[in-house]
């Protein structure tokens, strides 16, 4: 077994517990695993940012937004978007190293089952789509890949019009950008949006808005990283 990130060989300790029933193979070596920061403890109840306040200033501002206020019930993220995760996500998404998903699949599934324990029963997952051009470029949609990890059915209910990469825009540009999403299949169930990174929250709120307009009662967001 080799680490998915640094390709070092991982030597698994064998003890009486694992001798007959081997433990699941680790995907990352201990030193890479230690560089991932799970979000735990006090956080903003709306966006999962680590803070002592119950609602962070950014989320308070969102409450006064003319069109996007109240679009999202809340967002839950799994990891802090630190330098190491930035590197891994960049390699996964932009270099297209699909299998790196396995590095955080278990944590992504576990956190989902904790946060959405009640909600997931009658909700449907909707991964944030890529534009067709971007999908051809990357050859996979990272949000869909994440949704597949979860044991709840997902539906490609949205389409996206091609625009410049979000990651290349400033916060101001992002907030001012037009809504790129359209609803393909209207849903009348609660929706949990799945995406890789929550940065400003604009993308997720845009998606939530079009879903709500087409009859969806409540929209949540579940993301891998909180930027």
């Amino acid at each position: 077994m080799h680490c998915l990130s640094c390709d070092q060989e991982i030597i698994v300790e064998v003890n009486w517990n694992t001798l007959f029933k081997p433990a699941p193979e680790p995907k990352l070596c201990p030193s890479c695993e230690a560089k991932l920061e799970r979000i735990a403890g006090k956080q903003c109840k709306r966006c999962s940012r680590l803070t002592d306040q119950t609602v962070c200033p950014d989320c308070q501002k969102w409450e006064h937004h003319p069109t996007l206020a109240g679009a999202l019930a809340f967002n839950q993220s799994v990891y802090t978007y630190n330098d190491f995760l930035k590197e891994i996500i960049a390699k996964w998404k932009y270099r297209g190293d699909y299998v790196l998903r396995e590095a955080f699949a278990d944590a992504f599934r576990d956190q989902f089952n904790i946060t959405f324990k009640q909600i997931k029963k009658d909700a449907v997952l909707v991964p944030i789509p890529l534009s067709d051009r971007r999908l051809q470029e990357r050859s996979f949609n990272q949000a869909e890949a994440l949704a597949q990890v979860l044991d709840t059915p997902y539906q490609q209910a949205l389409t996206r019009i091609h625009s410049e990469k979000q990651s290349k825009k400033t916060r101001h540009d992002r907030l001012a950008s037009a809504n790129p999403f359209q609803v393909k299949t209207p849903l009348n169930k609660p929706v949990i949006l799945v995406d890789d990174i929550y940065t400003t929250g604009v993308t997720l709120r845009h998606a939530a808005n079009v879903l709500r307009e087409s009859g969806c009662p409540k929209v949540y967001a579940y993301t891998l990283a909180r930027g």
């Binding site: 080799h2 390709d7 297209g96 190293d97 699909y98 299998v99 999908l135 051809q136 990357r138 050859s139 996979f140 949609n141």
Partner: peptide
């Protein structure tokens, strides 16, 4: 370990990279 499967959106098949 250098060959991993990918469900490819370009050709709609799962193959290695």
């Amino acid at each position: 370990r250098h060959f991993a499967p990918i469900p490819c959106a370009r050709c709609d098949e799962t193959h290695v990279y």
